[in-house]
């Protein structure tokens, strides 16, 4: 009776968790669902006279394998969620057909294979489950057991070899980076120095706080264009910042008219933002990464915008 209750509870839980594993969009949820299934199965093992396996299930699967999954998830990008739109025609339909067919067939085939009540393991595991298993492993199946050790070592080596990445070029030193910066300055006139931090009279060092020059005016170099554009769209752009930007744009227009084209004018912050900043290489698209603009990290909006509100 007790076993029945345990079974029905855990069966329902494990099937729901398995379905959740398959249908959740986020891989982390899937991993957690798998953990639930494994723990339920561990309990079911224990119920079926397999305490050693239950322990191993928890230690090896839930402990080691699940952790490994989670590690890799972190490496690959934990917050990426799968699109569940099917791209292969007919794949999902046939998968469901196959799954249902398989479930029915297996249930009919294996489920009806057993006649009569279980014999139980009391006779087989006379000296206790663990020692009986150990006896089997180290006597009759000792060769297979040793071979599994070779397999595990091979797997460990394989994982190391596969995950290892050889560096093909020397890591750039401070000196190299400095040279690069000044070479860029010579070529395009790009400012080699760090961009100005928050100004002398700045009340805090938030990213949307422009730096102040000694005369108290705003340094155009320090205005973050993304934030400015966002604030403009929301109508919360501080008027002094708007003035500075307008002046800069006007100066740029006249310079462009004088030269006929942009020429060697000092690039503005906006331009730097366009081409990705001075020190960073272009990142591949599609991955959500922090954007580095002009030496500062521009975080995805949300939190910083919120903190800025009260600062003004």
């Amino acid at each position: 009776m007790g076993e029945s209750i345990t079974f029905w509870v855990l069966a329902v839980v494990s099937v729901i968790a398995a379905l959740g594993l398959v249908f959740s969009r986020r891989a982390v949820y899937s991993a957690l669902m798998l953990g639930v299934v494994m723990l339920s199965l561990a309990v079911l093992y224990a119920v079926q006279d397999a305490p050693f396996l239950a322990a191993v299930q928890i230690i090896v699967y839930t402990g080691a394998v699940m952790m490994l999954f989670l590690f890799v998830l972190m490496l690959v990008g934990v917050d990426s969620s799968d699109s569940l739109v099917e791209t292969i025609r007919g794949q999902r339909f046939w998968a469901v057909v196959g799954g249902l067919g398989f479930a029915v067939l297996l249930a009919l085939g294996i489920g009806n294979a057993v006649v009569g009540s279980p014999k139980g393991l009391t006779a087989a595991a006379e000296g206790g489950n663990v020692s009986s298993l150990a006896q089997l492993i180290f006597t009759r199946h000792v060769f297979a057991f040793e071979v599994t050790s070779a397999l595990l070592i091979t797997a460990a080596l394989g994982a190391m070899v596969l995950a290892h990445r050889e560096r093909t070029e020397a890591k750039p030193t401070q000196r190299d980076l400095s040279r690069q910066r000044f070479a860029a300055f010579g070529r395009t006139g790009k400012n080699p120095a760090p961009l100005p931090g928050p100004g002398t009279y700045a009340r805090h060092n938030a990213i949307d706080m422009p730096a102040l020059l000694p005369d108290g005016t705003i340094s155009p170099l320090s205005v973050n264009r993304y934030i400015a554009r966002y604030e403009e769209s929301k109508g919360i752009l501080p008027p002094e910042v708007a003035d500075v930007l307008e002046q800069e744009e006007a100066a740029q227009r006249t310079a462009a008219q004088a030269n006929g084209h942009g020429g060697h004018s000092t690039p503005t912050v906006a331009e730097e933002a366009r081409d990705g900043g001075p020190d960073t290489e272009p990142l591949p698209e599609g991955t959500e990464q922090d954007t580095v603009v002009a030496g500062r990290v521009v975080r995805p909006r949300g939190e910083s915008a919120a903190t800025e509100e009260d600062g003004k």
Partner: peptide, 16 residues
């Protein structure tokens, strides 16, 4: 055994 079959089929569908 039926539970085992169900889980197996669900896993299979997931793979697919």
């Amino acid at each position: 055994l039926v539970l085992s079959a169900l889980l197996f089929a669900i896993g299979g569908v997931g793979v697919l």
